[in-house]
Design a protein around this nucleic acid. Structure first.
Length: 585
RNA sequence: GGUGUGGUAGUUCAGCUGGUUAGAAUGCCGCCCUGUCACGGCGGAGGUCGUGGGUUCGAGCCCCAUCCACACCGCCA
């Protein structure tokens, strides 16, 4: 037996017992005739004591231990004369009588501490060392708890976990596929699933009326802090349900997760906002509702007063930042610089302060009368001490998006985006389609299997762009944590949908024939949702990047710097697969 | 595909307007230290300034190219 106890569990109730511990040397402190060693494992840190007085030879051996050596010790649990209130085992220490080095260690390239000196790059290269740090370990523990709670909850609701294949066929629409060559079928390729969407729909046809799966999805698109080429979804689908049923069930699940993982009881129903309102009032389909600062449309108030920028704008919108009138000229200039950054791309920003006496001082005073500015104040519902920020532009939705960036930046600057506060909502009534300039056709906004709202079905033939879908996203703190839809179960409607999306009947049959054929044999009405596990965990853990809750993540360019993948393969492998590689120009 | 920021000791960073031998902290090594817990004290080793080119009497610093990392835009049903 390598150990009788872990390094995190011994306390004063164990005083006097003889124990065996094993773990890593966190740190040694040599005091001359006495040496302290902090022994670490997954569960905690226990202090070991070696003394010249009791065993000089053993103490000498302890002095030769280096960081991250793996050792095993035996000794007596004793009460400390100087206790350490900062750690759970701080009241005891082990008077060691036996020491065995199981393996030595090279000096690690960075310190294995909460406050490590290692940069991102280095920590990724030595991820197995990074994972020894309690910060990263705790994130993985949270992830584990979350998957356990998801399974417990969905099982209690009658859901069956069914695995679907990773090697499937490539589908058009949506993200780029990762493809896998087939040796037995030369020149042919599998694709890794972007999501098990069509497979779970087939399971509904099979009668598995409540399915879920915690499953990897793969998308070959450019990455971000909250995007990995492979990520995990909690994928769910139900039969004989309407949107309301799906929303209710998964809202309950979200509340269950908040309660069990964060101890937060969310009693109120999550607010619901139409996609249209989300865009109109927040400039985003995933608004951060931890703070107000709702958009106010100001064309009526500010147009026609001789200020050309506004007079010619298609859209004028403002936000009111409470208590921000104290902003200095320099801070305001920085905000203007912020919105002019190429990523945001605005031309500028108009600001107006509401002074203590209620008067309004703006950057466009020469175009507007005092009365007009008072009118602005009323429209914005602004009070003394508030700062009004106004943007305008030719394209309403583009300007809204820019104003959204400004709103979020103001939220950051004013400390309104508290990571321990959670604002959940459903965004509903998404448009069915969006226009793609690149493809020069309508594209499914969610996916081609999404059911249009019943009342909008007639519009499919007259004004498809206006059709709304039975699609919904759950948004928390400005993060899309999940989304889904009611699916089409009528083969005729599905065929019509493919037609609008520009598929010929032959092409639709070729790409999605398996699904349309299945629907010929009695498809139940069904719908579902997929939650992004990585995003949930990082939200609960307060992380800025989902990488910190993934054991072995990829970097910005999709590389695994530890394994050095992707990499070229042997010519022999290429030959077997009948593949030829081409130099990129 | 694009924009921005960064790359200097094992690590995290500083390095002024281009000017002597490139610094700090931490880690590492050695010596001292019997109640430390981020122990402390003294000493030491450690550098292709990402790479290639250019400007200059002289480049860590300026210019061009390139590679890598990070953040973002496009993209991600």
């Amino acid at each position: 037996m390598y150990r009788t106890n872990t390094c995190g569990e011994l306390n004063r109730t164990n005083i006097g017992s003889h124990v065996t511990l094993a773990g890593w040397v966190q740190r040694t402190r040599k005091m001359g005739g006495m040496t302290f060693v902090d022994l670490r494992d997954r569960y905690g840190i226990t202090q070991l004591v070696f003394s010249d007085n009791t065993n000089a030879q053993l103490c000498e051996e302890a002095n030769r231990l280096g960081r991250e050596f793996v050792i095993q010790i035996e000794g007596i649990v004793s009460e400390r004369s100087n206790k350490n209130a900062n750690i759970l085992t701080g009241e005891i220490e082990i008077i060691v009588d036996k020491l065995r080095t199981l393996t030595s260690s090279e000096v690690p390239p960075f310190t294995i501490e909460d406050d490590t000196d290692g940069g991102d790059d280095l920590r990724m290269k030595y991820r197995y060392l990074d994972l020894r740090r309690s910060f990263v370990r705790k994130n993985l523990e949270l992830r584990h708890k979350m998957t356990m709670e998801v399974r417990r909850y969905l099982d209690s609701q009658g859901f069956l976990e069914v695995e679907t294949p990773m090697l499937i066929g490539s589908t058009p629409e949506g993200a780029r596929d990762f493809v896998v060559p087939s040796r037995m079928n030369p020149g042919q390729f599998y694709a890794l699933p972007q999501s098990p969407q069509t497979l779970k729909q087939l399971l509904m046809v099979s009668g598995f009326d409540r399915y879920f799966q915690i499953v990897k999805c793969f998308r070959d698109e450019d990455l971000r802090a909250d995007r990995q080429p492979e990520f995990t979804q909690i994928d769910c689908e139900m039969s004989f349900v309407e949107q309301e049923d799906v929303i209710n069930l998964f809202e309950s699940m979200a509340k269950h997760l908040f309660k069990t993982l964060r101890g937060i009881e969310l009693k109120e129903a999550f607010p619901r906002m139409t996609w249209h309102d989300a865009i109109k009032y927040y400039g985003s389909d995933k608004p951060d509702l931890r703070f107000e600062m709702k958009f106010v449309e100001l064309a009526q108030v500010l147009k026609g007063c001789g200020f050309g920028v506004f007079d010619n704008a298609a859209y004028i919108g403002g936000i009111c930042a409470q208590n921000a009138a104290v902003y200095t000229r320099k801070q305001l200039d920085n905000l203007i610089e912020f919105v002019k950054k190429p990523q945001i791309g605005a031309n500028g920003l108009v600001y107006a302060r509401v002074e203590a006496d209620g008067s309004v001082k703006s950057s466009v005073d020469k175009f507007y009368t005092k009365d007009k500015l008072q009118e602005l104040k009323v429209a914005m519902n602004a009070n003394p001490g508030d700062l009004i920020l106004i943007m305008s532009g030719d394209n309403a939705n583009k300007t809204r998006k820019q104003l959204c960036e400004l709103r979020l930046e103001m939220g950051n600057q004013l400390g309104l985006r508290n990571k321990n506060k959670f604002a959940c909502l459903w965004v509903i009534d998404f448009p069915m389609f969006e226009w793609s300039d690149e493809e020069n056709r309508l594209m499914a906004m969610h996916h081609p299997f999404t059911h249009p709202k019943d009342e909008d079905i007639p519009l499919l033939d007259t004004n498809a762009a206006e059709v709304r879908a039975d699609a919904y996203d759950m948004v928390i703190n400005g993060v899309e944590v999940g989304g889904g839809s009611i699916r089409i179960h009528d083969p005729k409607l599905q065929a019509r949908m493919f037609e609008i999306l520009g598929f010929t009947p032959e092409k639709a049959q070729e790409q999605f024939g398996f699904l349309m054929n299945a629907f010929k044999f009695g498809a139940p009405p069904h719908g579902g949702l997929a939650y992004g596990l990585d995003r949930w965990v990082s939200l609960f853990a307060g992380l800025d990047s989902i990488r910190d809750c993934i054991a072995f993540p990829k970097n910005n360019s999709g590389r695994d710097v530890m394994l050095d993948a992707p990499a070229p393969i042997e010519q022999k492998q290429l030959d077997e697969l009948c593949l030829q590689t081409k130099q990129k120009e």
